[in-house]
Design a protein around this nucleic acid. Structure first.
Lengths: 230, 230
DNA sequence: TGAACTTTGTGAACGTGTGCACGAGTGCCT
DNA sequence: AGGCACTCGTGCACACGTTCACAAAGTTCA
């Protein structure tokens, strides 16, 4: 009878902001704040108040006019919408520099994404313990995914191994992938992929720095290296 | 006389794709490919061919109709537009798990962002060497920024220290910040900030997993915890 | 009770990004 | 030289995202 409040499709832009709201709301809750206005939340999140209201309105009408939003209740609703009512174990492929840092970074488990396993192809890495989890051989990936009910895989390999890692994850039954390797992964359409690429971020900053500097280049070749043709 | 080809404003969406094109073009160049069509580049970048053409058209008319784009020339132009004709030294604040991984990750220097220094508040970390760079005390930050002409700072501290780290970076003269801490940084408007937040990415994946599962929650409280009021 | 005040929820306008479709330019082949 | 095949560059329409502005709904206080 309640007209199916859950099945609304939430815009991507909103989904990407909900985690930010959630963190802020959790902090406020911990600080003993009971209620918060869209204005206050917007301030803390660094966005426009109207945007906050519109974003939250996709979850339903959980505010109280004249008052604001009850923090704890909103935390509950955002968590529910993001599927954070239970843990999502993740498996990390690649125990190199990055994989080690990710495993060692406690924040994963704390935020509901416990590390169910780390795997690597390199036998010399297998057996060592990172952040309380033993590194296993990549052949054990399917078993880990199956027994620990893992839906999310993290690709932390060098670029050259990333596509293979992704293929193995998909084969093992993972349906979402967080990719740290600097390549474009090719996966079935049904698999959700998100990419984190440090080089891209730095290059975007570089663009703005260069632009700030007036677009002046320190040593411009008079003739661009137009080689072929002619 | 040439009507000022450089001052065009390039859309953000395009700027964020240029690094991807650049990496692919560089790979193609290394593989001995001379020329590439928008179709071919689009395929490799996982985007639409029209989008590639429109993106590249913001740089100028560097393609040849009937043929495609000369790879090396396009690499040159994209690098120029992104300000990658010279190195941008970066300074990392925070020598914890993440800071260590970032310093140890060779990819930084290779891609034109050499690590000019790593600093930390913790004296016990000062002096150790990470990825060939010695960890220094944060008090030395201004000196590092000034002598190494650093424009880009990386915040790799825990969330609780991140705002302070950002303040110190800004004070020291940095104008762009890459933030790995899970908080919203407050900085002067003129400072460019980009954020990389693992928890946010995982929570976005969680949303899609939850949605895939039909929005069913394993154990829904019959009554949401609406506490106050009443 | 009722009036003044506060803050939500949302329609509407605007701005940005995407993708089609096609004209225009280039190379190749006869 | 002329025609054909190919691919770029871009105008246009549509989709998506953001922001404004205001009615609706609730609270507070006399």
């Amino acid at each position: 009878m309640a007209p199916d409040r859950n099945r609304r499709r939430i815009p991507d832009a909103t989904v990407s902001r909900l985690p930010v709201y959630l963190r802020i709301l959790s902090e406020q809750s911990a600080a003993g704040v009971d209620s918060i206005s869209s204005e206050g939340l917007a301030e803390l999140a660094g966005v426009n108040a109207a945007k906050v209201r519109k974003d939250l309105s996709y979850l339903g009408s959980y505010g109280t006019r004249g008052v604001g939003y009850e923090v704890d209740y909103l935390v509950y609703q955002v968590r529910r919408e993001l599927g954070l009512t239970h843990d999502w174990p993740v498996v990390i492929v690649g125990a190199g520099n990055l994989g080690q840092a990710l495993a060692g970074y406690g924040g994963f488990g704390e935020r509901g994404f416990p590390v169910a396993g780390i795997v690597d192809v390199d036998d010399s890495k297998v057996g060592s313990v990172l952040g309380g989890v033993r590194v296993r051989h990549i052949d054990e990936l399917p078993q880990i995914v199956a027994t620990k009910r893992v839906n999310i895989g993290v690709v932390a390999t060098p670029g050259s191994a990333a596509q293979e890692a992704a293929d193995l994850l998909v084969q093992a039954g993972v349906t979402s992938i967080l990719n740290f390797a600097p390549i474009v992964l090719t996966v079935p359409r049904s698999i959700e992929v998100r990419k984190v690429d440090l080089a891209v971020e730095l290059q975007i900053l570089s663009y703005h720095e260069q632009r700030r500097a007036g677009g002046v280049i320190h040593a411009v070749p008079a003739t661009p290296p137009r080689s072929a043709t002619a």
